[in-house]
Design a protein around this nucleic acid. Structure first.
Length: 932
RNA sequence: GCUCGGGUGGUGAAAUUGGUAUACACGCCGGACUUAAAAUCCUGUGGACAGAAAUGUCCGUACGGGUUCGAUUCCCGUCCCGAGCACCA
């Protein structure tokens, strides 16, 4: 019988859905395994063949784990709030919910065709109110918490308030904004508004007036990870810095833990490194320089000496400080500017402010700055140095002020050269005439008590001295900033916050979800308010509700927890379900979320962990980053001003224009000329210059997109070759982690393999023969093929090396075909093993070989035991007619293999014979280990 | 500039981590079946040299050195490619 993949696949997909084959109950009698894919944003374009790459890999792994007896949680859902649906809504007036639901349906039908083993009973959509109820709930918990540095944990704000009432905040150590010190009496005397303002500085979700990334085109603020090179990641619109009142999450409080806990995760080094860079820890010292104007007559406003605090990682270079710099946005600017410099400073500031983020980045090489008029005193040398204002110092990092050591910092060096400031070298033998010496090595000179020390010793020695003198202390700084959490958008979770006499107040938990109201148009209002300002009665008990909504990462930060217990109405995740499923064992997704979702999720999880809602401190134990699949575009070459097209090999002889051509009318780079003429009316009477009677197209690797006519839809591949072929082929293409272009050329090879496999069950005669397998005992040769296959595929799956396991199947099937092997005892274990990769064909063959249920995973351990027992035995190896040592071999290895190995390496044999070798381990033809 | 990955046939890529380099697949060459094509199947396929042939010899994993009985794998230097970060003091 023929291999009718379309019928077979439809049959089993229906069977799985009807029987809920992949339903994963919270069954504590079995070991659990949680395999998660990053859920997709359902875009209007649907899935292309690149999207399912990671899903296929994780599906193979899930099915494999089920075979091994695990209770596997493998859910899927949709990250359904987002910008594209809203942009579409603004243009068309169609409610984003409608577009989103349509897209979800399309995604679902595409996913179903590939035969994934998702437990759809656990599906979540972030835009459903019974899902975002828990997003809002978590936000309220953050609003009601503060970060205690003493316990290094988030704690309820109620406890903080009672501490304030008893003792004020003198003993409180918290990650917080700027707050005055106060006693309990002072606290009690504060007005409600004052109290609220103070508490706001402590909350983990807080309202803050900060400089934000404002994108005028999108009409919203963006988080740091949503901005790249000064433009928005979505849309590529310019972004500027603007002071605004916004909701923020105090992610920075968790910076240290986010960094430290990275160690124990099984993530790729590249990804961990990205997070490390993003969090950016640096050890150093904070110290104080006195501001001392030499000539008070110069309009100095100082009636006393000010202490200006700076941060440095190079305390050892303090003797080389020749000037100081503060950021233009720093609050120090006003205090430091003297009368005589006032005009120059103001000019500089207006100029700096006008620049967009993009311009600032473009001009990183140009050095700008202005002298403030004030001077500071070096606490070690007593020398007076000028204080400058310059853009190269950032207000948001450290204290927004630095001590400049031009000899040993390239940025300070460039600045000193431009403005003619002094450069004092501090390291023996360094040449600072052309560039600074930034390396942290060498012997100190010109450095008082540090002179003669190595830089590595000098840094701690300098910090110690700073601490001894009481002018500063050792400290750690992080680059990671608090996450801006509000968006001036409609299609997102509403904040459960209302403003009672301008005091931000939480909507009671019992009233969640706070549903997103319907509105007529989705644009921001004419006076620049967010779209929710258009909603009627957007108020709680008569008080106005917050009009911003939450950003995209809000809904995706805890979805992995919701899958554990998706229908629980009492909690985000029930205690019992959480204790069983714990966290994600394997997470598969792209690197693009390295500094966004993967940071926010870890933060969110740690926060819930602190409050005792979840039992693991990290959400994702092991992470695999699947590569992107790019498109392979085809081109035709039109001779300019004609309707004649010239084949790729001849195009250099003419003046041509390159035109993208739909890859669906090109086969192995050969153009279907008739189809091309029918593709577009303007090509109806196109002429062609051929080579060898064919039109050969050019090609290039590009992003898969509609505009380049290179999108390959998985549905088409499924109809033409079947889902099993698609699954195998995507794996066969190369390692999952690698990015690679899609090329349909090789798919025939994989499809042929499945036909060949199918034929094994039909006495080698597809189309003619009838189903025919025997109960005969396998020969040793057949067992060896099987044994090798099981071993190879198992180790490959564990290492996520699916391309090589597909190859192993091909080798085995080729070998079994050559032997015309149709013995059940050989073929059935192959079916079981292959069912992880190509489930439909395997289910069918499983049934045909006489099994009544869906691939009965319970039977697998038997085969597994029987065929993977590795009896090792000693095999003597001799040189010069004398037995020298014995080889340790497993039963599947042949004698001839070993002899060949030794013969292949006579030098090795000679060497080994002359040494005391205890054991060498050999596989056919190759020595893999020598024990001396 | 800094930090991580990588460079293996015509192409996608293997190599059990120091043990016969190029498995598997595509493509290509030749053959079988066919009136023919498609499909299918079989054979060959790193390079150079020698031979009628089986076969043999040498060179080959970006380049130059090193360690080792033995290096695609480890070490040093150079050159390319990709990804991420980028005034973070």
């Amino acid at each position: 019988m023929e291999y009718k993949f379309n019928e077979i696949e439809a049959k089993w997909q229906k069977y799985w859905a009807e029987n809920k084959t992949f339903f994963a109950p919270t069954d504590t009698s079995k070991p659990k395994y949680y395999v998660l894919d990053m859920f997709p944003y359902p875009s209007g374009a649907g899935l292309h063949v690149g999207h399912p790459l990671g899903y296929i890999a994780s599906d193979i792994y899930s099915r494999y784990k089920r075979l091994k007896g695990f209770n596997v949680l493998h859910p899927m859902g949709y990250d359904a709030f987002g910008l594209p649906a809203e942009q579409y809504a603004i243009q068309t007036g169609q409610h984003p919910r409608i577009t989103t639901m349509e897209n979800i349906d399309r995604y679902r039908s595409q996913l179903d065709r590939i035969g994934f083993s998702f437990d759809w009973d656990r599906e979540v959509k972030t835009c459903d109110s019974d899902y975002y109820k828990w997003t809002q709930w978590a936000f309220l918990k953050m609003f009601d918490s503060w970060y205690n540095k003493k316990t290094n944990s988030a704690e309820p704000i109620k406890e903080l308030v009672s501490e304030f009432e008893k003792r004020g905040n003198l003993k409180v150590e918290a990650f917080c904004g700027e707050v005055p010190q106060f006693t309990s009496e002072q606290w009690q005397a504060y007005s409600d508004t004052q109290k609220s303002d103070i508490l706001m500085q402590y909350r983990i979700a807080y309202l803050g007036e900060t400089s934000v990334n404002w994108c005028p085109e999108l009409g919203t603020v963006l988080a740091n990870d949503e901005v790249k090179e000064g433009v928005s990641v979505r849309g590529g619109f310019p972004v500027e810095q603007k002071k605004m009142k916004q909701w923020l999450l105090r992610v920075s409080a968790y910076a240290g833990r986010l960094l430290d806990d990275l160690e124990e995760l099984q993530w790729s080094d590249a990804l961990k490194e990205m997070q490390r860079n993003w969090i950016g820890r640096s050890y150093g010292a904070q110290m104080v320089f006195k501001v001392v104007n030499p000539d008070p007559a110069d309009g100095s406003k100082f009636d006393r000496e000010y202490d200006m605090e700076i941060f440095t990682t190079r305390a050892d270079t303090i003797f080389g400080v020749t000037f100081m710099v503060v950021a233009p946005e720093s609050e120090w600017v006003e205090k430091l500017t003297t009368e005589s410099q006032k005009q120059a400073v103001e000019e500089y500031l207006t100029q700096a402010k006008k620049k967009t983020e993009r311009e600032r980045i473009a001009e990183t090489k140009s050095v700008t700055g202005v002298f403030s008029g004030s001077w500071a005193q070096n606490p070690f040398t007593g020398e007076k140095v000028p204080i400058w204002i310059a853009e190269y110092v950032l207000a948001g990092y450290g204290t927004g002020a630095i001590m400049a050591v031009p000899a040993h910092d390239s940025r300070d060096y460039a600045f000193a050269k431009k403005f003619g400031l002094k450069i004092v070298p501090l390291i023996e033998g360094c040449d600072v005439s052309e560039e600074s010496f930034d390396a942290k090595e060498g012997i100190m000179i010109n450095s008082g008590f540090l002179t003669g020390m190595n830089v590595k010793e000098a840094i701690p020695a300098a910090i110690e001295e700073v601490e001894r003198r009481g002018i500063g202390h050792r400290t750690v700084n992080y680059r990671l900033r608090d996450a801006i959490f509000s968006r001036q958008r409609y299609w997102g979770e509403p904040f459960p916050i209302y403003y009672k006499d301008d005091i931000a107040t939480a909507v009671p938990e019992s009233e969640l979800p706070l549903e997103l109201p319907d509105i007529e148009t989705f644009k921001p209002t004419d006076n620049g308010e967010p779209p929710l300002a258009r909603a009627k009665n957007w108020a709680y008990q008569g008080y106005p509700l917050e009009k911003s909504t939450m950003p995209g990462f809000a809904g995706s930060s805890a979805y992995y927890l919701r899958y554990m217990d998706p229908h629980n109405e009492e909690a985000l995740v029930g205690r019992e379900a959480n204790r069983y499923w714990r966290n994600v064992d394997l997470y598969v997704g792209g690197t693009e979320h390295a500094t966004g979702h993967l940071i926010y999720s870890r933060f969110w999880n740690k926060f819930l962990y602190d409050l005792g809602y979840v039992c693991e401190k990290e959400p994702f134990k092991k992470l695999i980053n699947q590569g992107m699949i790019q498109g392979r575009s085809n081109f035709v070459y039109r001779i300019k001003n004609t309707n004649t097209f010239v084949s790729n090999g001849l195009k250099d002889k003419y003046d041509t224009t390159e035109i993208h051509v739909d890859i669906n009318i090109v086969y192995n780079d050969r153009l279907d000329i008739e189809a091309f003429r029918n593709w577009r009316p303007e090509y109806n009477n196109a002429e062609f210059i051929l080579e060898n009677g064919e039109y050969i197209c050019g090609w290039a690797v590009e992003k898969m997109s509609k505009s380049m006519f290179n999108v390959v839809n998985p549905d088409n591949i499924c109809s033409k070759y079947g889902a099993d072929t698609l699954r195998l082929y995507e794996m066969f293409l190369g390692p999952v982690e690698m990015s690679k272009p899609w090329d349909t050329k090789g798919i025939d090879g994989v499809h042929r393999f499945l036909r060949k496999f199918w034929k094994l069950f039909y006495g080698g005669g597809e189309g003619t023969g009838s189903f025919c397998v025997t109960d005969e005992e396998p020969t040793p040769q057949e067992l060896k093929i099987l044994h090798k296959l099981i071993h190879k595929v198992e180790t490959d799956i564990e290492n996520f090396s699916f391309n090589t396991s597909v190859s192993a199947f091909m080798v085995a099937v080729n070998e079994l075909s050559a032997l015309k092997c149709n013995k059940k005892k050989v073929l059935v274990p192959v079916i079981v093993l292959l069912s992880a990769f190509a489930p439909h064909i395997c289910e069918e063959l499983w049934q045909l070989t006489g099994h009544t249920q869906s691939v009965s995973f319970a039977d697998f351990p038997m085969y597994y035991e029987e065929y993977t027992k590795e009896d090792t035995f000693e095999y003597p190896v001799s040189f010069n007619g004398k037995t020298r040592f014995k080889l340790s071999l497993s039963k599947s290895l042949s004698k001839s293999g070993v002899e060949k190995a030794v013969l292949a390496a006579p030098e090795t044999a000679k060497y080994l014979a002359g040494n005391s070798v205890k054991k060498i381990i050999v596989v056919p033809g190759r020595i893999i280990n020598i024990v001396m």
